[in-house]
Design a protein around this nucleic acid. Structure first.
Lengths: 95, 95
DNA sequence: ATATTTTGGTTTATAATATAAACTAGTTTA
DNA sequence: TAAACTAGTTTATATTATAAACCAAAATAT
């Protein structure tokens, strides 16, 4: 009856990150941090997890002299997000 | 941008329970256990939490000689569930 | 009759997770 | 040149979910 919700996506911050990345080509660490209103530490950890799962790609470069971390969603990530949303509908679609 | 997702509802088993209770007047412990495919221990703990929050009402009685735990969603629970669903839409509605 | 399994749970322990705090390395500003 | 800020990472802690162990009574098998 209730299918499993991908635990990687069923976490507020990671879901917010994925939601954001679904709507843009790529986003900088600081932009994501602001939009999700998260701490850098927490965000760093969650980005690592999404990255380790292959749901997002993380690119480290420099903007001038400052480090710059840029993230984008992968094909696998898009698929996972869509699956998650479909599964979720089972739970919240109560009629 | 991203509103907080009620942590009490943003948990697979509790969400499944609430989803179930949204569609019936009341349900027995064993029925919920089967439908959510959960262990009795886990379910017992999660029902306590939902009950402590006032989201569900738990009634303990007897069916013949066997204990019978019956649950139903409260007004507060319905409100919380609806709020949760609305908030969630922010996250999954990506266009 | 009595031992064994099943029912309907609760309690306690453990594993996983999210979050916060502390830290690093370098940069800009006073 | 010292202080404060940027852009993060690492480590520690608190929370949470889950599983395992347990309990009391009832039903079933021996």
């Amino acid at each position: 009856m209730f299918k499993e919700l991908d635990p990687l996506l069923h976490a507020q911050l990671r879901l917010a990150v994925m939601s954001l990345l679904m709507s843009v080509a790529s986003a900088e660490f600081t932009y994501i941090r602001e939009k999700t209103n998260s701490t850098a530490g927490n965000l760093s950890v969650q980005l690592d997890k999404l990255s380790a799962a292959g749901y997002i790609a993380v690119e480290k470069s420099f903007k001038g002299k400052k480090p710059l971390t840029t993230c984008s969603i992968t094909k696998k990530g898009i698929k996972a997000f869509e699956d998650y949303v479909n599964t979720l509908k089972q739970y919240i679609h109560t009629r």
